[in-house]
Design a protein around this nucleic acid. Sequence first.
DNA 1: GCCAAAATCACCCAAAAGTATGACAATCAC
DNA 2: GTGATTGTCATACTTTTGGGTGATTTTGGC
Lengths: 145, 145
Amino acid sequence: MKKQYLFYGLILGALMILMRLIEYRFLIRSHVFELYGGLIALLFMGLGLWAGRKFTQKRAPVEIVQVPPPVFDENKINDLGISKRELEVLQLIVQGHSNQEIADRLFISLNTVKTHSARLFEKLEVNSRTKAINRAQELGLIRVN
Amino acid sequence: MKKQYLFYGLILGALMILMRLIEYRFLIRSHVFELYGGLIALLFMGLGLWAGRKFTQKRAPVEIVQVPPPVFDENKINDLGISKRELEVLQLIVQGHSNQEIADRLFISLNTVKTHSARLFEKLEVNSRTKAINRAQELGLIRVN
DNA sequence: GCCAAAATCACCCAAAAGTATGACAATCAC
DNA sequence: GTGATTGTCATACTTTTGGGTGATTTTGGC
């Protein structure tokens, strides 16, 4: 970690010096300007550093999401317009089966499973099976027995 | 890692050069000073933000482990040899996040998330994230309450 | 300070999952 | 018997995951 700081410091310093040299060649502006720019750079760099640190430390910790008690609720299934077959697929998804496994178990093609799961995801308003698992447990769509 | 340094260096250099170019173009006009200052401010603010985030990313996530409410079995985590970071990843997987989302949240690369999850799957003796979710819930590796 | 474990990242390849669209038959309500 | 719904399947394509390997860096314990 310290090495990194040092490294970046050096890079920054080197670039600053480089800037100076180039600037000298053009001889266009007064030193006031450079001072001003440097100061601004330093100031905002510091501000950025501070802000970055501040935001990062709060966002980084992984919050543990509380899962509501999974109570099986048949009404929700109807509310969401989930069909019988879709529910079967959902159950197998929640149990951790792959699409191929589900296809084999229900004696339907892989494509059909995909169709069902796609519709399922739509109705559950998710875009992946892992999120569907969460959502299903949240909503109590699945019997936990 | 070397590549990364180089990359950052180049980015920085490129920005510097860009600054110079822009500066040159506006030299003739009157409001150069303010423009230039603002630009510097913005650039370094961004740089600072990035750096602050980068440098603090590793420390922050560690905190979660001490959060109290446990009805989960910590012994099993040790038994299986699951590391702290791996557990974090597991928690996010169980919560339904994609690898990319996990990477973003933990401020690590997608590749790293894959490495963690691969080891995780090994230790949990599964071969997919959905099965890992089941297994984690079975073993009580995750705080559910 | 050194060593081992943990964490990070990269690259490649293959498999699985997801998206979009279209099609067709069975069932059921009206 | 018509229309809507459901279930089935396909093709094509993109994205995500998973598996394997190797490497560097950081951390923690001794």
